[in-house]
Structure formats: structure tokens, C-alpha cells
């Protein structure tokens, strides 16, 4: 289990992460979403022990993670731009990490090499962005991490590899009780695999919870009346993006599905439709709630 307590990280005058607290359960997949510069990568770097928090702490399995060799030995971090030195090949990197990570699994490494079909003798630096990601993925899973931190990992991968990666993540979570934290701007991937999500904006948590909870917190509503109705009708409801076209109203309503439905039915509409938001819509909706709106 990962416990994040009052985590703050500043870069000179900029506070990248501001007093974040959250708990991520073992054996779950947590998505990190947020606006650009919201602190996702900084949070991942602190989780992986690259950055030291200015305030607060990260406790992994009851131990502080920073400069903790045993915690780091069961974690692996794939950054948004994985580093490969000039002469590095997959084979060389594997032989290096084999001596560094205590749980390195050679057999699994060879299996992964077959799945991802990367030339193990080729210079990684000369490979495409997608192939470099695949190299990073092979190495990451071969270390058999208990905690895996992936920053924009789907970026640059083709749909087949993306699907393979998702499968791999889910298998590892199911079979090995691995905990995965993924940051991405592609929320469709979260929809497929994430159990929970942390929504960040300007270094703070906007929303934290299960993916389904996030989606079921808001609904796209279309409602039409036989008579002219005033907007005052919806006073007291938590609604956004109100559009009126004659007697037809469309908006996003926040709250419990049952409560919203019952409330709107009480106005005796001629027509009413309530649809759950996609994760992306839910994300935009949440962001609008904190003043980060689509221009």
C-alpha cells in the first residue's frame, strides 16, 4: 500500500505539488490525470524516489521511500522520456539491471522479448519512440516490481502494443498483486484498466476515487418541456454547461443519478434523457469546476 501524506514539492517559486494526500491500495491500478503542469510527473518522480519531497512523506509498505533501497528494489519507474545511453542495447541494459534489481526475472525477460519483438542487440538510441518505450516496458516488467510507475507510457505505442501492454499490466496485477500508477492524458486507457484515479490541477487533487465513481458523478441531461420554462426551474441543482434551445435544455448535472432523475421528473418534462459522461467528459467537467475551461 502506498500512503501519500501532505506531499509538497516546490521548484523555486513554483509549487508543483501542493499538500497532496492519498492512499493507493496494493494490487490496484491508479490513473493519474490532470491538466498540463498539474504535477503528475513530479508526483511520479517522488513516488519512485527520484525527487525528495519538500514536505510530507510517501510511505510504501510502511517504509519511507526516499533513498530506501529496499523500497526502490521492488519499484520501477518508466519516465515520460526514458533515458538510454548512446551505446545501450536491450541486452546490455538487461545485464546491468539484472545486477541492480533483486527480483530480476530472466525467464520473464526472454518471454517479454518475444512478445514485444525488439532487437535486443540494436542500439536503443537509434530506435523509434515506440520501440524505445517497448524496451523500457520489457525492462520494467523483468524486474518484477511490486510497484510500477508509468509516465505517459501509452504515448507512441501502436494499438496492438497498447493492448498488449494493458493485458500485461492487468495480468501482473491479477497474478502478482502488482500496484501500478499510470499517468496519461489519454483517458480512454484509464477507462479500460484503472481501478481508481487521481485528478490533479495546479499541484492539488481535484478528485480522487474509483473510475466508475468519477463517471457516475455527473450526467449529460437533455430535457424538453411542453411549455415555456424559465432557467430558474433548475435552481438548487448542481449543473454546468447549460444550453437552452427553445423549450429544450441540455446541461451536465452533478450528483446522484437517482436524485437527479427524480428531481427532473417532478417538472413533468415532455422528454428527458440522462446519459453518464465518458471519462474524458467527466475529466473536462471536473476541470471546469476548478476554473480550467475549454476556450
Amino acid at each position: 500500500m502506498i500512503e501519500i501524506k501532505g506531499l509538497t514539492k516546490r521548484f523555486d517559486k513554483i509549487t508543483a505539488v501542493n499538500n497532496i494526500s492519498a492512499t493507493i491500495q496494493t494490487g490496484t491500478i491508479c490513473g493519474l490525470a490532470g491538466s498540463n503542469g498539474s504535477g503528475k510527473s513530479t508526483l511520479l518522480r517522488m513516488l519512485s524516489g527520484v525527487y525528495e519531497p519538500d514536505e510530507g512523506s510517501i510511505i510504501v509498505d510502511g517504509e519511507l521511500n526516499f533513498e530506501n533501497i529496499s523500497v526502490k528494489g521492488k519499484s520501477y519507474y518508466v519516465s515520460d522520456y526514458p533515458f538510454f545511453s548512446n551505446g545501450a542495447t536491450l541486452t546490455k541494459l538487461a545485464s546491468y539491471l539484472k545486477n541492480i534489481y533483486p527480483n530480476w526475472d530472466n525467464e520473464y525477460y526472454y518471454n517479454l522479448c518475444k512478445i514485444f519483438r525488439v532487437n535486443p542487440k540494436g542500439k536503443v538510441i537509434n530506435m523509434s519512440k515506440g520501440l524505445q518505450r517497448q524496451v523500457a516496458i520489457i525492462l520494467a516488467f523483468s524486474t518484477r516490481p511490486k510497484y510500477l510507475y508509468l509516465d505517459e507510457i501509452f504515448d507512441g505505442l501502436d494499438p496492438v502494443i497498447r493492448q498488449s501492454l494493458k493485458k500485461l499490466i492487468v495480468e501482473n496485477v491479477a497474478d502478482n498483486n502488482m500496484t501500478v500508477i499510470i499517468s496519461s492524458h489519454n483517458l480512454r486507457e484509464f477507462n479500460d484498466i484503472c481501478d481508481s484515479m487521481l485528478l490533479l490541477h495546479q499541484g492539488e487533487i481535484v478528485r480522487c476515487g474509483g473510475v466508475e465513481d468519477m463517471k457516475s458523478r455527473a450526467f449529460r441531461v437533455q430535457i424538453a418541456f411542453n411549455d415555456e420554462m424559465s432557467l430558474d426551474l433548475f435552481k438548487g441543482m448542481d449543473i454546468r454547461n447549460m444550453n437552452q434551445n427553445g423549450r429544450l435544455f441540455s446541461f451536465i448535472a452533478l450528483g446522484d443519478e437517482q436524485d437527479i432523475g427524480n428531481h427532473l421528473q417532478s417538472f413533468k418534462p415532455a422528454f428527458m434523457e440522462m446519459l453518464p459522461l465518458t471519462l474524458e467528459e467527466a475529466f473536462i467537467n471536473e476541470m471546469e469546476g476548478v476554473g480550467y475551461e475549454v476556450i
Binding site: 527520484v50 520501477y76 522520456y81 541492480i100 534489481y101
Partner: peptide, 16 residues
């Protein structure tokens, strides 16, 4: 002096 390299080195289970 290289952020990308420090991401890799900093996350390794080796003390700085």
C-alpha cells in the same frame, strides 16, 4: 546534469 538520466539513476535501488 541530465534530467532524463537522473530519472533513471534516481529511481534505481542504489544509494546516490
Amino acid at each position: 546534469h541530465n534530467k532524463r538520466q537522473m530519472d533513471f539513476v534516481g529511481s534505481l535501488p542504489v544509494s546516490r
